[in-house]
Amino acid sequence: MDAEMVEAHHAALRTFASQEDIAAILVEGVPRAFCAGGDIKSIREYALQQPYKDDPPIDHPVARVFQTEYNQVCDVARCPIPYMSICTGVWMGFGVGNSAHGDVRVVTQDTLFAMPENSIGLFPDVGFAHIAAQLPGAIGLYLGLTGRRLSAPEDLLYSRLGTHQARAEQLPSLRDALVHAPLSRHADKRKTLYQLEVVLQKFQEPVLGASELAALQPLIDSCFEPALHHRARGRTAPQALDDIALDLLTIAQTNDRPAARQYAIDTLEALQKLCPISMAVTLRHFAAVYQDVHTGPGPLSEIEGVMKQEYALAVRMCGRGDFAEGVRAAVVDKDRNPKWDPANLSDIREEDLDAIFAPMPPDRELQLDFLDR
């Protein structure tokens, strides 16, 4: 995905949302170009061809991609008409940003969700920290840090990532029903959402199985929730990540339930493969957003503030060697053996994190130009 492709979708959303005579719905059957995040190979090439140490100008190709993507995230979150996404197939990266901030998210038995950016030296962006803060307990941080994949509809619904479930083979009929439904536009879009709900219920699949994520919730919360308050506890992000690993190790060694031990072992193995600086950035960012959302008001309690912060994080992380190395190992050479720098959490300096999180100069920060509210 390049900036032109995102801009085309961005313009389409504005056109739909500004027309007064259309049915008050935008159905987004997330295109392949958006499903698995941006074209990280292209972003890597932009950063290698035009390297930067200081914050790049907004016309730098790396900056341009994130400027466009993050404006799109705000457009979705603030869309004045109901925004509906059909999230089937691979649902990752910008596919999440392009849909999860909307009103309705239909998942199917073929949906595969993940935010795996910590495995490529980036961090889970597109406002996922804001979504994560509103998921049950510490599930949002758990999914963001580990990149765990969710494919069971009962897990997607339990986590609140999905709002409705339909069979994949029923999607053409669902689209037809939505197109021909007698929808009308209201100043209060909740009234139109009620009309949509009538249509959606005709295709809603019952939840047949128990959610594995629900069963793991107490364990997830016990390991990850304290990290959301790490600064108040006098811990740095790397120290809090060590605390998570220690709690997981204790469960793996002492818990008498096989499912609990397997959860701990799998999670430890996942964390050990990820970029250390990415995990530290993720935890610090998600914890700050969580605090503002739950105790606010603060700049990160609203999506606009989150995206401004994430823009600074994204362009700075893409300018680091870890991003180029992570993408190389994942999708260029595909050796799955990245060499991270620093290689260990203990080698991360607090001043390096402070620099990544520092405010950007006004002429280089995210320029928001989203839908008129």
Rank of each mutant, 00 (worst) to 15 (best):
H285D: 08
H285T: 03
H285G: 02
H285L: 06
F286M: 05
F286G: 00
F286Q: 02
F286C: 04
A287F: 01
A288T: 08
A288Y: 01
V289P: 01
V289A: 00
V289G: 00
Y290A: 00
Q291S: 09
D292I: 06
D292M: 04
D292R: 03
D292L: 04
V293M: 07
V293C: 06
V293I: 12
V293E: 02
H294Y: 08
H294G: 03
H294F: 04
H294R: 09
T295K: 11
P297T: 15
G298D: 09
G298I: 09
P299A: 03
L300C: 06
L300M: 10
S301D: 12
S301R: 05
S301W: 02
S301G: 11
E302S: 08
E302G: 05
I303P: 01
I303E: 05
I303A: 05
I303T: 01
E304Y: 07
E304P: 02
G305W: 03
V306R: 00
V306H: 02
V306Q: 00
V306E: 01
V306A: 02
V306K: 00
M307W: 02
M307K: 05
M307T: 07
K308C: 11
K308T: 09
Q309L: 10
Q309D: 11
Q309S: 10
Q309N: 14
Q309W: 02
Q309G: 05
E310W: 03
E310Y: 07
Y311T: 05
Y311E: 03
Y311F: 13
L313P: 00
L313Y: 00
L313H: 02
A314K: 01
A314S: 13
A314T: 12
V315Q: 05
R316K: 14
R316S: 09
R316W: 06
R316P: 04
M317K: 06
C318K: 03
C318Y: 06
G319Q: 10
G319H: 08
G319S: 12
G319Y: 04
G319D: 09
G319A: 12
R320Y: 10
R320A: 10
G321S: 14
G321C: 13
G321F: 11
D322Y: 03
D322V: 08
D322Q: 11
F323R: 02
F323L: 09
F323E: 01
F323I: 05
F323G: 03
F323K: 02
A324D: 07
E325S: 10
E325A: 12
E325K: 07
E325V: 07
G326T: 08
G326A: 11
G326S: 08
G326H: 05
V327L: 07
R328D: 14
R328K: 15
R328E: 14
A330M: 13
A330D: 15
A330V: 08
V331E: 15
V331G: 13
V331C: 15
V332Y: 12
V332E: 12
V332F: 10
V332R: 13
V332W: 10
V332K: 09
D333K: 06
D333Q: 13
D333W: 09
K334C: 15
K334I: 03
K334M: 15
K334N: 15
D335H: 14
D335P: 11
R336C: 13
R336W: 14
R336K: 15
R336A: 14
R336S: 14
R336G: 12
R336M: 14
N337Q: 14
N337E: 14
N337W: 11
P338M: 09
P338A: 08
K339M: 11
K339N: 13
K339E: 13
W340T: 10
W340I: 10
W340G: 01
W340N: 05
